[in-house]
Simulated assay, not measured.
Amino acid sequence: MRRAVPDATITFVGTQRGLETELIPGAGYLLHTVDMIPFDPSIGAKRFLLPAALLKSGAQCRTILREQGAQVAVGMGGYPSAPVILGARMAGLPSVIHESNAVPGRANQFAARLTPHIAVAFDRSRAHLSGGQDARTVGMPIAASLARLDRAGTRDEARRAFGIPGGARLVLFNGGSLGARRLTEAAVGLAECWRPRTDVHLLIKTGPAALDDTRRRIADAGAGGVATVVPYLDRMDLAYAAADLVVCRAGSATVAELATVGVPAVLVPYPHAPGDHQTHNARVLSDVGAAHLVPDGDVTAELLADLVEPLLADPTRLAVMSRAADPGTHAQAADLLAAQVMRLSGLTFPSLPAHPDLEHTA
């Protein structure tokens, strides 16, 4: 949107509970907060308060939209997005929702009943949304550095950046922004098993909280030569370019990134995701042979060794997995979604990428 309309006014709606209170103002955008509770059965008796909370926060959003002079409301699927779409309906404004997961969350299942304008990251989520048969598959917006990544051309630079020994196969363990205990435990065990080897290397992202303990355990196991432990990765483009195989969760952004850059993966869905949506996300890649799906409860160092070692020893098989991934439209998703938003406000997106779904008028 900023590239298309540099002076556009873009504001956000959230709650006081989430990271948005830091991240959005930190990025230079205005954040409005509303009184909304999660669409979550685990909140127990509070679930009976949900209709009243939704009406209250919807009215708050209607006021925000009118005061901002908004032309379009966009819901990205988090629970604060539901009152935004409701508020737009109350204010008589057009709105669009984007569903990023293969199985939609409760907020978008509700919001889809309030707007005919639905965009999805994966085709298979259409069946779970009211009006989903008319949804537009635009992909999942990903970072520009990944959208344009030349994995083969960047590989040597990336391996130097992480200090990967020449000729060693690299397995990247990526547990998300906060890490994943199950994956970290398996990675430590695998590093201990592989500690005498020089032909493989592990890059383990732990999240800040588990960093010191993981480094200590790797050192105590004498596995420092085969494993590098980092709290986070600020250059995912280099991490993907350096890796021969990724072991990770199956969030929608991660699946879209893997599909776009073509890195073979072992996907371990987070078992407590609402609607088990990470398993459905993982199947987008596993069903076509671009990844192996391993249930969280089955993940051990021994199982990963049995699965990963034959893959690393067979470059042809890894190449087949890489080619099996369908890059889809994730690299263009931000532009495609922005174009749909602009059509609803009567504007034309400049240099619109070719995409048949956007030939329709809004």
Score class of each variant (00 low, 15 high):
Thr260Arg: 06
Asp276Gln: 12
Asp298Cys: 06
Asn174Tyr: 12
Gln16Phe: 07
Ala250Trp: 02
Asp276Arg: 13
Arg126Thr: 03
Leu65Glu: 03
His360Pro: 00
Val103Phe: 15
Thr228Arg: 14
Thr279Glu: 11
Leu258Gly: 07
Ala111Gln: 02
Leu146Ser: 08
Ser345Phe: 08
His355Asp: 14
Asp156Phe: 09
Arg182Ser: 12
Asp287Val: 00
Val266Ser: 02
Ala338Gly: 11
Gln332Val: 07
Leu146Tyr: 00
Val120Tyr: 05
Gly297Asp: 09
Gly176Pro: 00
Pro208Ser: 13
Val341Lys: 00
Arg216Tyr: 07
Ala52Met: 13
Arg17Pro: 03
Gly222Tyr: 12
Glu359Ala: 14
Pro165Trp: 03
Leu303Glu: 09
Pro83Tyr: 05
Asp35Lys: 12
Ala338Ile: 08
Ala241Met: 11
Val96Cys: 05
Ala305Met: 05
Pro165Val: 03
Cys248His: 05
His272Gly: 05
Ser57Leu: 03
Leu178Lys: 15
Phe122His: 06
Leu93Glu: 05
Gly167Gln: 10
Val246Tyr: 06
Asp213Leu: 11
Thr63Asn: 12
Ala305Val: 02
Arg124Ser: 13
Gly18Ala: 01
Pro295His: 01
Ser130His: 13
Asp35His: 09
Asp306Asn: 02
Ala301His: 00
Pro116Asn: 09
Lys56Ala: 14
Ile218Asn: 04
Gly69Val: 08
Leu285Thr: 08
Leu304Met: 06
